[in-house]
Design a protein around this nucleic acid. Structure first.
Length: 586
RNA sequence: GUUUCUGUAGCUCAGCAGGAUAGAGCGUCCGCCUCCUAAGCGGAAGGCCGGGAGUUCGAAUCUCCCCAGGAACGCCA
């Protein structure tokens, strides 16, 4: 259905036009003075210049023209020239009623031109456990994916594993040092490689940081790792067999962890999947004259005249001939275009990588890997900091594993539930994990993605304030009443509001469409958070001063229940887009 | 050094296609459970929107300069 602001605007525009003013002055926005009115139009102030009239005169004229319009309870001119608008309670109730009758979408229409979008989020390294650094990509990407899907786009999520490059060389080098007798290291071996991996996930997780540490101190070790990387990339069989072991062991562990986060991917492709496309891609870049040798490396210039800063060329191959991050990302775009041909690709990545992606995007467009009419978006997110404002660490100063973080938050929630609940242990634990996820995700998503934010467990899990648990609690309240009222009349209409708090709730509900579409357009989940926080507040106020189940007027009671249903549904739909769920009780 | 992001209440953050008295939460203080979950609701105190110029009838919001902090800046990803 048509957004409420749009409906109001049409009336106001008509008013302006009828008075002889340009329609552009009929812009309507939410009031920034809710104490005075619900909506406002500042067009008269702007029109004053063009028509050489006092703003208040214009506003008064338009206000008179609009008086008597059924949509408005009030439409008055206010000095110096504001047009203050209140909707009639009837119109408001009717609008909300219409939303309620739209069972699954609550008035939100799908986009008229759905797109095929591929979204690249996650980016975990195999052989390394998920840590907090992967949290934001997963959470934000998942939310953007769900939102776009809800709006009608076809969205393909790709985890984009980090399963190539120096880190693999490091693991192989360390493994060789520890178990040189393994057949994978015997270059003359030409039999079948064992199907059982020569390590467990925990060993793997220990090997990488160890190797990485050594390579920073030991030049020769680093050299060996780079050689191993090169050999792996150039088809050394034993190493490739090792790679697939590493992948298998690691991916099943990753899947388990992402599942806990309620984050899913349609594709489990990795950097290694792009490798077969590299030779042709590179050759074509050379043939087309885009790629040339500079300082020993193969590069493509991506400078543009409008640049305010130096944009270094996009490096395609290192001087030793090995591929690197950029190469792999470009080759990944090759198969993405070839196999899926998406209209756009969205990268949800740490914002520090912005320059790299600028280079990659330009290079992809310039060399024709990605046609000009496709869009490549970089959604950069900030760092997750600890309470001290520095990157989040464990108490020991190491990188916090996601599993442990999750466990810590779950324990906190469980404690709270046990304190004031009467649940069985089993239900308490289930509920704790649901609420914990909401605490983490809401804590993250309620901040603008691009900014750094402080991950404060105590605040996120707090009983009070703008938190995931608060939103869930509100939903649980709705559910609790609805469960008790067995006779919810699905066909009931929502009556004009009886009280201020009810009216405020109506008004808040009408903003759902606008909130969602702006979150969608800006790829900004925090806008959904801001909206549901306002909605939850409005509901709790209403809840507090309205006796719902005890209401004697049955029509009114049915209207309340309908209102509750809509509130619950919108909240649940919204948190689903954020990537978490509400329990039945808490 | 260059580029870029950030700077709003004691703390954590909204608001930024300019508009009327700058908004939340936490923390502090004061109220509210014989009533549908008090993980709630109401209220109070708390701000030169980093500083300075400019554009405008009007600036937290746009432009420029400064200050402070972070980040990126060709063979890591």
């Amino acid at each position: 259905m048509k957004e409420i602001l749009q409906q109001i605007k049409e009336e106001v525009v008509a008013g302006f036009v009828a008075c002889g003013y340009d329609e552009k002055y009929g812009m309507v926005s939410l009031s920034n003075r809710p104490d005075l009115c619900q909506f406002q139009c500042n067009g008269a102030l702007a029109a004053a210049k063009e028509y050489k009239k006092a703003p208040i005169a214009i506003a008064t004229e338009v206000a008179q023209k609009l008086s008597g319009n059924e949509m408005f309870a009030k439409c008055e001119a206010c000095p110096p020239g504001f047009l203050n608008i209140d909707l009639s309670d009837e119109f408001l109730a009717k609008f909300v009623s219409e939303m309620a009758s739209d069972k699954d979408r609550f008035g939100v229409e799908k986009v008229s031109n759905p797109k095929k979008i591929m979204i690249d989020y996650g980016g975990p390294n195999v052989a390394k456990p998920l840590h907090v650094g992967h949290l934001r990509s997963a959470i934000i990407g998942e939310s953007i994916k769900r939102t776009a899907r809800f709006m009608g786009d076809e969205v393909i999520g790709d985890v984009h594993l980090g399963d190539w490059g120096l880190q693999m060389g490091l693991i192989i080098t360390e493994l060789k040092l520890r178990k040189p007798e393994l057949v994978y290291f015997d270059e003359n071996y030409d039999g079948e490689y064992p199907s059982e991996p020569p390590f467990t996930i925990s060993e793997l997780e220990e090997i990488y940081p160890c190797a990485s540490g050594k390579s920073k101190e030991d030049e020769a070790y680093k050299e060996a790792a780079m050689t191993a990387t090169y050999e792996l990339q150039h088809g050394r069989k034993g190493y490739q067999a090792l790679l697939s072991h590493i992948l298998n062991v690691s991916v099943s562990d990753l899947k388990r962890n992402y599942e806990k986060l309620d984050v899913t991917f349609d594709l489990w492709k990795g950097e290694s999947d792009a490798q077969p496309y590299i030779p042709d891609m590179v050759q074509k870049m050379k043939d087309d004259g885009f790629a040339y040798i500079s300082e020993g490396a193969l590069v493509v210039d991506v400078k543009e005249e409008t640049d305010t800063k130096e944009v270094p060329p996009c490096m395609i191959l290192k001087s030793d001939g090995a591929s690197l991050y950029n190469t792999t990302d470009l080759a990944t775009l090759v198969w993405r275009m070839q196999d899926y041909n998406p209209d756009s690709v969205i990268y949800v990545v740490d914002k520090r990588q912005e320059l790299y992606f600028t280079q990659v995007f330009r290079c992809a467009k310039k060399t024709g890997i990605v046609p000009a009419d496709k869009n490549l978006y970089f959604v950069g997110f900030g760092t997750m900091n600890g309470k001290d404002g520095k990157p989040f660490k464990t108490r020991q100063g190491g990188v916090m594993r996601l599993e442990y973080l999750l466990k810590e938050v779950e324990d906190k929630m469980l404690e709270k539930i046990k304190e004031n609940g009467t649940m069985s242990d089993e239900e308490a634990e289930k509920t704790a994990s649901v609420v914990a996820l909401s605490a983490i995700k809401y804590g993250d998503l309620s901040n603008q993605a691009s900014k750094d934010y402080i991950f404060d467990i105590d605040r996120f899990t707090s009983n009070e304030g703008n938190t995931g648990p608060y939103i869930l609690y509100t939903i649980v309240r709705c559910k609790s009443i609805l469960n008790k009222a067995k006779d919810v009349d699905a066909l009931a209409t929502i009556l004009p509001a009886h009280s201020d708090s009810e009216k405020a709730l109506h008004l808040e509900l009408t903003k759902f469409m606008a909130a969602l579409s702006s979150a969608y357009e800006d790829m900004a989940p925090h806008k959904i958070c801001a909206y549901i926080y306002d909605l939850a507040n409005a509901f709790n106020r209403f809840y507090h001063d309205t006796k719902i189940l005890a209401e004697e007027d049955q029509t009114r009671k049915a209207s309340y229940l309908k209102l509750l249903t809509l509130t619950r549904d919108i909240l649940e739909q919204s948190i689903d887009l954020l990537g978490f769920k509400a329990p039945e009780r808490m």
